[in-house]
């Protein structure tokens, strides 16, 4: 059992399930935007939450389990964003239609978010890691602007802000904890 749960394929299957369900549902492209957008955002939030979770939960085993799989979660977040964009393009049908609404803030925040995620996804392999060296870590920090752009996109495009805020509140709290933790440590180094 443990061997299965810890297997890569198990985790990939888990990450793919919502996509499979969405594709099989046969819904119109316009109706697929909701689910694919939310899953992308959820996975992006989860990927970002792992480091502070490890800290808050004092390196509990499950947080380390997640930490080992963070790259897969990040790549899956991008895959859902790509699917989301695919359905958007299918729904808009033409390039002029797409361009006609690209100046609306709720839309360009989405495009910028996916560009940031694309850069991260393209470099999420060992070869890029070696090639970019110290630059790699910096590049992966694009996840923060991507998350903020996603939050803006969500708040502005969706009817009502509750869903977006509920999803982002845990991450905000975790980051607040991490910042407080680092500030404390700096003040009282002996305590560290």
């Amino acid at each position: 059992m443990k061997a299965i749960v810890n297997h890569r394929i198990f985790f990939w299957t888990l990450l793919a399930l919502p996509a499979v369900a969405a594709i099989l549902s046969g819904k119109d492209a316009a109706d697929q935007l909701h689910g694919t957008g939310e899953w992308s955002a959820r996975l992006l939030i989860l990927a970002l939450a792992i480091s502070p979770l490890v800290l808050v939960a004092r390196r509990a085993r499950w947080t380390l389990w997640l930490q080992q799989r963070r790259r897969y979660i990040g790549v899956a977040a991008f895959a859902y964003a790509a699917l989301h964009t695919f359905y958007y393009v299918m729904d808009m049908e033409t390039l002029p239609a797409i361009l006609s609404e690209i100046t609306i803030i709720s839309i360009w925040t989405g495009w910028l978010a996916i560009i940031a995620m694309l850069l991260m996804a393209l470099t999420s392999n060992d070869a890029s890691m070696r090639w970019l060296r110290a630059g790699w870590k910096k590049l992966q920090r694009l996840a923060y602007p991507a998350a903020i752009l996603t939050l803006a996109h969500w708040l502005l495009i969706h009817d009502g802000v509750t869903a977006a805020l509920i999803h982002f509140a845990p991450l905000a709290l975790l980051e607040a904890y991490r910042i407080a933790h680092h500030l404390n440590r700096r003040k009282t180094p002996a305590h560290a």
């Binding site: 808050v56 009817d159 009502g160 509750t162 509920i166 845990p170 709290l173 975790l174």
Partner: peptide, 22 residues
């Protein structure tokens, strides 16, 4: 601090107020 964050996290996750959307 840690306890506060943990409980706030739990509350934020559980409480999903069904506000009017429009």
């Amino acid at each position: 601090m840690r306890k506060i964050i943990m409980s706030a996290l739990a509350a934020a996750t559980i409480a999903a107020p069904a506000m009017a959307t429009g």
